[in-house]
């Protein structure tokens, strides 16, 4: 025993010394970049969120005061409520459309499949700013498409930029932009299903609907989950569309219309960088929690 120990000890020591460096050499470059562009900004945001800068009195450490303010800030919660409503309504609609289009293309019964696929995907290639400006012009009831239609046919269509309809109008823009993107995720998931399954189903006498229901949809579960999580994050980050439409709906889009827009306004108009960082972090944590819950639920179903 004693002999064996004497032999083993230096070996352990040597391998311990070796182990600590080789791995780091491989991950080192990644870790350096990751720290610099990823962890550092987050750390800096957290650092900022612990201070308060006043026009009169300068900067002081306030601990978690900013977080306390944010959690009881009615403007923050109203912006959160708005994106939550957006999420609950827009995301299912968008994903359903994307799913239907993907199934339609995959069915092989569509004439001009490649053209159809590209044209549905094309809006995703249009920058969000351009897309919003374009839709904004169409929505205009004074000088836009809606206005022209009203003039030409003597109608009075509801104003898409009114307080009642604006969120739905933004949902329409976002759906237009991202349905094609999600369609592509679904379509590529459908493509990896082995054709032998379809053959087997046909031999068993299954119709197309039955194949969709029993083979395609279950196979899409993973893709659906990832698309849902992307969409949740996208909804919570809603910014470009309200920021651009602000010029057309000055009074409807408040400075706290969405959490991100609120953070932007706090920082750029109110010079409350500290509180802005707090709002961003709170929102980031909420997003993480919700994304995680959806993921856990999705994974459990898959088992």
């Amino acid at each position: 025993m004693a002999e064996a120990q004497a032999v083993a000890t230096p070996q352990v020591r040597r391998s311990a010394g070796r182990r600590s460096w080789r791995g780091w050499q491989f991950v080192g470059p990644f870790m350096a970049v990751f720290t610099l562009v990823f962890l550092a900004p987050i750390g800096y945001s957290i650092y900022l969120s612990l201070f308060q800068t006043k026009l009169i009195g300068g900067t002081s450490f306030v601990g978690v005061d900013n977080y306390r303010t944010a959690l009881s800030d009615p403007q923050f919660w109203s912006s959160f409520g708005r994106v939550a409503l957006f999420l609950a309504v827009q995301v299912p609609i968008m994903l359903c459309i994307a799913l239907l289009v993907a199934l339609a293309i995959d069915s092989g019964r569509l004439y001009g499949k490649a053209f159809f696929r590209v044209s549905v995907f094309l809006p995703y290639a249009v920058p969000a700013v351009v897309a919003t400006l374009m839709w904004g012009f169409m929505y205009g009831s004074q000088f836009g498409l809606i206005g022209d239609i009203n003039d030409a046919f003597g109608l009075s269509l509801p104003d898409p930029l009114s307080a009642r309809l604006l969120l739905a109008s933004i949902g329409n823009i976002v759906t237009w932009e991202f349905a094609g993107y999600n369609m592509l995720i679904f379509y590529s998931a459908l493509k990896v299903i082995p054709t032998s399954l379809y053959e087997a189903a046909e031999i068993d006498g299954a119709g197309q609907l039955r194949i969709v229901w029993a083979i395609k949809i279950p196979a899409l579960r993973g893709a659906l989950l990832i698309a849902t999580i992307f969409s949740i994050i996208g909804s919570f980050q809603l910014f470009t569309e309200p920021a651009i439409l602000k010029h057309l709906a000055l009074n409807v889009i408040t400075t706290y219309y969405t959490p991100n827009y609120y953070a932007y306004q706090l920082s750029f108009s109110g010079q409350q960088q500290n509180y802005s960082a707090t709002v961003a972090i709170v929102m980031g944590v909420i997003t993480m929690v919700i994304a995680y819950l959806v993921q856990v639920r999705g994974a459990r179903k898959a088992v």
Partner: peptide
Amino acid sequence: GIAMAASLALGASGCGSS
């Protein structure tokens, strides 16, 4: 999920110079 959510915080901190 964490990555995406964190980039939300990241976006806002870019303008947060004290």
